[in-house]
Design a binder for these strands. Structure first.
Lengths: 148, 148
DNA sequence: TGCATATGGTTCGATATCGTACTATATAGT
DNA sequence: ACTATATAGTACGATATCGAACCATATGCA
């Protein structure tokens, strides 16, 4: 492997470690048995709107649909979402947030305010946000080239 | 949550998605039942040297020691590493790569050469490597502030 | 219309990850 | 030396993730 590829490899390695550490940080703030993956779905529904199908959510997170079936069943058992049959497609379902789900999401977001503010203070907001355009470009490229 | 924190939140979100996509890419290149986490340990031992303890490896990857016990047992069953008692500490063990382990790591690295070269071609190497200093700084900060 | 194929979702089995509790050995303080 | 505490590793149980197989409904096409 040449130096160029070594550097690329290191890039993905750094990304993996940052993800590991930041996930642990978020996890520690979530209520009892709520996993980061559960919160992510709640957050997705709040930000982009509910009423979408399980498969659409699975695709948005790049996880197999079986994983999303499991995640949604946990959220439903906890009363944070509600599933209804799809209006026009008999095979499909639609997912709605409950009041409890919105409340849980808001609480979780609020609990992360402190740590994020501290990071901004210590590192400077720009240290992270300056990277956003490039990261979005890379994410979009990888998303469009999953068969690479 | 203010705009600053929203941007920080988005940064970690992009990192998570890139990690998800790149892990899937690596995973697809690994031989049969070898998981990314297994390869990562092999790679760590090759790059930083073997003869270290399970706990040291667990700390390096920020995973619980129970997870590393499991990962190492898989690698040992496959004959990719070998475990020996620690020379001076009776509680501890040391981990060594086998020839098969070195061979597997080299093969996996080689198989990623193609995809990495293609990414370099499509995005430009600098698009990714220019971010490395900032990412290292962020990773190092998070690593030093795990209690945040 | 009828049949082949595609799609949305679940079930099931295998494995990864992780927390709690436990064992064995080391170290510190008296 | 003795005891209390700390540390390295494992056993076990719970949950997350994922692939393969399956069922039900939709869609395309003759």
């Amino acid at each position: 492997m040449n130096d160029q590829n070594k550097a690329l490899f290191q890039f993905f390695n750094e990304v993996a470690i940052i993800n590991q550490l930041s996930s642990a940080m978020f996890q520690a703030r979530l209520p009892d048995g709520l996993h980061v993956s559960h919160f992510s779905v709640l957050n997705h529904l709040v930000r982009l709107g509910d009423g979408t199908t399980p498969l659409a959510i699975a695709n948005a997170f790049q996880v197999p649909k079986t994983t999303m079936t499991h995640t949604l069943s946990v959220l439903e058992k906890r009363g944070l979402i509600r599933m209804a049959p799809h209006a026009t497609d008999g095979r499909s379902k639609v997912v709605f947030l409950t009041d409890a789900g919105r409340h849980t999401q808001a609480g979780a977001i609020a609990s992360m305010d402190g740590p994020l503010a501290r990071i901004a203070l210590d590192l400077g907001t720009d240290t992270l946000t300056d990277l956003l355009p490039a990261l979005e470009q890379i994410r979009s490229y990888l998303d469009d080239n999953r068969d690479i």
